[in-house]
Nucleic acid binder design. Sequence first.
DNA 1: TCAAGAACGAGAGCAGTGCTCTTGACATCG
DNA 2: CGATGTCAAGAGCACTGCTCTCGTTCTTGA
Lengths: 262, 262
Amino acid sequence: MASAPKAGSTARQRARAELTREIKAEARRQLAAQGAQQLSLRAVARELGMVSSAIYRYFPSRDDLLTALIIDAYDSLGAAAEKAGQSQPAAAVRGRWRAVCTAARNWALANPHEYALIYGSPVPGYQAPEATIAPAARVAVVFGQILADATALRLNAVPGQDAPGAADGQPQPGQQAPGAADGQPRSAPALSPLLALQAAALADAIAPGVPAPVIARALIAWTQLFGMISFELFGQFVGSADPADEFFAYAVDQMATLVGLD
Amino acid sequence: MASAPKAGSTARQRARAELTREIKAEARRQLAAQGAQQLSLRAVARELGMVSSAIYRYFPSRDDLLTALIIDAYDSLGAAAEKAGQSQPAAAVRGRWRAVCTAARNWALANPHEYALIYGSPVPGYQAPEATIAPAARVAVVFGQILADATALRLNAVPGQDAPGAADGQPQPGQQAPGAADGQPRSAPALSPLLALQAAALADAIAPGVPAPVIARALIAWTQLFGMISFELFGQFVGSADPADEFFAYAVDQMATLVGLD
DNA sequence: TCAAGAACGAGAGCAGTGCTCTTGACATCG
DNA sequence: CGATGTCAAGAGCACTGCTCTCGTTCTTGA
């Protein structure tokens, strides 16, 4: 984000950007080492050879430092997901889905404290500021693109036939469930009006052209993915699916089928 | 748990049990009001009119107090799930599944900080002690019973025919996927050896007689459920499935179908 | 019954935290 | 050159978890 030192700045501004970056780097180091709870402004300052009050010139409070780290974490995870999403040909939607899910898990396993920071319980009174929602959406956008590509592929494959109730994202309730013969994985219950609306809005935002029922199922897969990662990371799997590698692969596959990825 | 004052104790023991309970109650109040991070032994002591060091006679450290609260939270959630699981006739497996899921969500919404305590990021160096795993398993046990009942029902309904590869919970890989005609929701990929083993062990523990593939899918549903609740509680749904009531009902239904609940 | 001993509450104290305020040095710009 | 704004530093406040010591009180065993 704002970590590239602008060339045309005064020395003071460059020094400020530099120090801001160093503070974040040291804070990230402590975060990775001991978790968010143990992140101490004083310790960061100590490590950087400055006095604690100086930190407040750069981050007005501990929460602001944490927010910066949260944004970085979202961006880091988002970049990993995007890279994984482009690692395969656009048409290989199922392979891309698998790659993105695996990338998300690997990122979480490699950066458990960062993951806990963004997908664990939010810090006490902490309210996610506006600046976090865009980076937070990056992973969702990757999934949306895969869905959109899959939908477009299906439409092209069967030129004369519309995707079931897809055009307006607002199918008549109870009308588009018959038979699982057209790529829809299975007869699905009709979406409630509000849910259909939410799905349509989501499609408009990040997955143009994708039918609402597919979006709704993708939401399921989305929550399943991060639920699974959280369970693994937070130790909820001990005694059941631990180690979780094979269960993870199985679940990713099942969810791909659920959302109708070929 | 150990909150009922034993009758045949000395006055001192009764006073100790009483005070232990009061400390936990006040701590729970603070937890509900401000979250685990803000839970302060000193504040608890202050509120109880005692001096902070006295608390250490009852809980050797802050973590021990938190552990007690965690166990209580698991028990509270487990009790809610069990009650919901028994709110309907045993044969109504799908209705029971729905009831238990809804109960879990309602409990989480009513006790967000307690939920975050047990399903959010684990506190810094906190390692879940042995005493927590039994209460933590209560919800899983409820789900296991529903699965076991569903399996038994299916076996009784088709007396001459075994459930596919169910008897030993260890079906021959790649053998039981053909056709979705027997209650299995859909052709499913074969389980990997390790996953089949984990599922079989899990079945032995809490869901006797349930085929391994069903267990594996139930694990998916399990992680999906808590992933969904976490996303709702931790604000990951803002802008997408918020409010989440209808999405929740939809997802619960889809997961019931996934695990093959009629 | 009565003394030894365990359990207890109170208090002082240590090391640490986030954060505020003031002070004096320095760089930048008019 | 001088005014202005930025900066690091330090002292200090209120708070935290936790330890240790000190009398007191209750429990228990001889």
